[in-house]
Design a protein around this nucleic acid. Structure first.
Lengths: 326, 326
DNA sequence: CTGAAAGCGCTTACAG
DNA sequence: CTGAAAGCGCTTACAG
């Protein structure tokens, strides 16, 4: 079922078949019909490998997600999908788990010319390695700030957002505010920790406690919260850098027989559906997840069409949602 | 940076470069070193399109997920990833949303020879259309039963599992058990509804109420629960066919000022992390999500290696987890 | 152990 | 409006 066979079937040359396939308008109606007929009869489907090898264009973009199970990531991906589809692009998802071997494997699709560009959501600390693998190919980093190299990126101002949450907790009279953070290989983790610490400093709050979750799951959030509760001085507020972690913290507090927010206030981050589902519902920073995804595609397509386009760093707006957990 | 350039750089033929690339052991050490050196210097990366076009092998499998944001799907995907990786295969994720246009677009990767096979998690009702698109290519349907055509599939016995949940609710003295189902284009939705109804019948329970959620989100679960609560007779138990829906139901019940399980018992399905996170934690059917994914890959690779392998239908074990919500 | 050459299935100037 | 031919970048018998 190659273009050859169709040509034979329709009694025309392969060039003509190709023209029909590509909607060239220079094909005589009769020939077009014969080709279309032959295609249908043979249930012919063009070989993408050959086409892309020839045209050096795939209209596909690779999306390297750090963790597909993270609802925030899923939302961003939806935004990416929407915008890509709107522009005639298809997306291929690769779950890197921020693992460099996996990333390498995934990125071979890029260097191997199967896709036209890549959107990554990997940890900042991996960016240099990624940069080496990606080389000159179109690339946008998403939902994780990149301040080095020529990568365009889109995200929010994590320091500001984090400061806002912690300030609100302090405003409400909380004295001992703890942080449940993700590991510091992520830039956003560093930035949010910076925001947290700066507010403690500004407000002369002495208590400071940071627990690092090994992954963005609520199990990890529970474990972190248990560690905080086991310390000699108990926090009266906890800021978790993701709703998933915060949901786990909630659970741990409940299991310790304490009440939220009476004994301990809990705030999350991301503004995922989960935040509104748990009990009590979580105060959180809502990120414009879909828009982040859409914007990333916009930047990437721009880069694909125009390889010399300057590097862009886009900051999106966030806002704080106050709920019963604080 | 083609194999040509490397050949020139290393002073050998393209055949020799290709042999080095493919770890052929018939290359003299000196030549191998020169090639390797040239590859490094030029930062050469082979063009996958050309390679796959030539070899008709990609070592990639396509995974069509119906909804990437569904935690159960995410777990299955992890199982798929693990098993694929173990066998030297890479996976490409496509979020079809059970939309036929999206599916068509994704499946062009298959017909276009970019991947060696496909694992779908699409709705049963779409299977015929999919079958037409997929043709003879290796294909396994996952977590959704397929009883027609030559598709292999792996899942659980949904009727049994559903009967078990409803029986337990009835055992506990619940008289008015409602069902929150997904739309009936999914076979599992039909099967679970069948299980539900058969138990009601068997136990001579008169009350019967089924609400259909438009999607697998907790918002849809809330809406469904609100509809159930608005009816003249209120249920005293609800079985939701996914934990996400059940979590939404929980929220709706709470907002109506009722208590779980005192006023209404709630049971979910899937055994996702979410079920243990909400309050009260959900009784649920635990599916062996990872194993389902692994098994699907096993069947698919078998089909790829041996196209005439017979169709297989594998049923995995499930078990019921009882928690405070019932 | 190595190289020249054919061929995978397309697209696209080019000539007519 | 159409076809013959070159070429995208690989791999792999085949001959030496």
């Amino acid at each position: 079922m190659s273009i050859q066979k169709i040509a034979r079937l329709a009694g025309v040359s392969v060039a003509t078949v190709s023209r029909v396939l590509n909607n060239s308008d220079t094909v005589k109606a009769k020939n077009r019909d014969r080709v279309l007929q032959a295609i249908k009869e043979a249930n012919y489907q063009p070989n993408l490998l050959a086409r892309q090898l020839r045209t050096a264009r795939s209209y596909m973009i690779l999306v390297m997600v750090s963790n597909i199970a993270n609802p925030f990531c899923a939302e961003v991906v939806k935004g990416i999908e929407e915008e890509a589809e709107k522009n005639g692009f298809r997306i291929l998802l690769c779950n890197s788990g921020s693992d460099i071997e996996r990333s390498r494997s995934g990125l071979s699709l890029l260097s191997g010319k199967m896709v036209d560009g890549v959107i990554t959501m990997d940890a900042f600390s991996r960016l240099n390695e990624l940069a080496a693998l990606i080389g000159e190919a179109p690339w946008v980093q998403c939902a994780e700030y990149a301040d080095a190299g020529a990568v365009s990126c889109v995200g929010i101002n994590d320091v500001d957002a984090s400061q806002h949450v912690v300030s609100r907790l302090a405003d409400a009279g909380r004295q001992r505010i703890a942080l449940i953070n993700h590991d510091l290989s992520y830039k956003y983790a560093r930035l949010r920790e910076r925001g947290y610490k700066s507010v403690l400093h500004l407000r002369d709050l002495e208590y400071q406690a940071v627990e690092y979750a090994s992954e963005l799951s609520s199990a990890a959030g529970m474990a972190a919260m248990e560690a905080l509760l086991a310390a000699p001085t108990r926090p009266d507020a906890v800021f978790a850098v993701s709703d998933t972690l915060a949901a786990g913290a909630l659970r741990a507090i409940e299991q310790a027989g304490l009440r939220v927010p009476d004994d301990i206030a809990v705030a999350g981050f991301d503004g995922t559906e989960l935040a509104g589902l748990v009990s009590p519902p979580l105060s959180t920073i809502e990120q414009p997840s879909r828009d982040i995804g859409r914007k990333a595609v916009e930047l990437l397509l721009n880069k694909i069409d125009n390889p010399d386009a300057p590097t862009e760093r886009v900051m999106m707006d966030w806002h704080y949602i106050e709920r019963a957990s604080t």
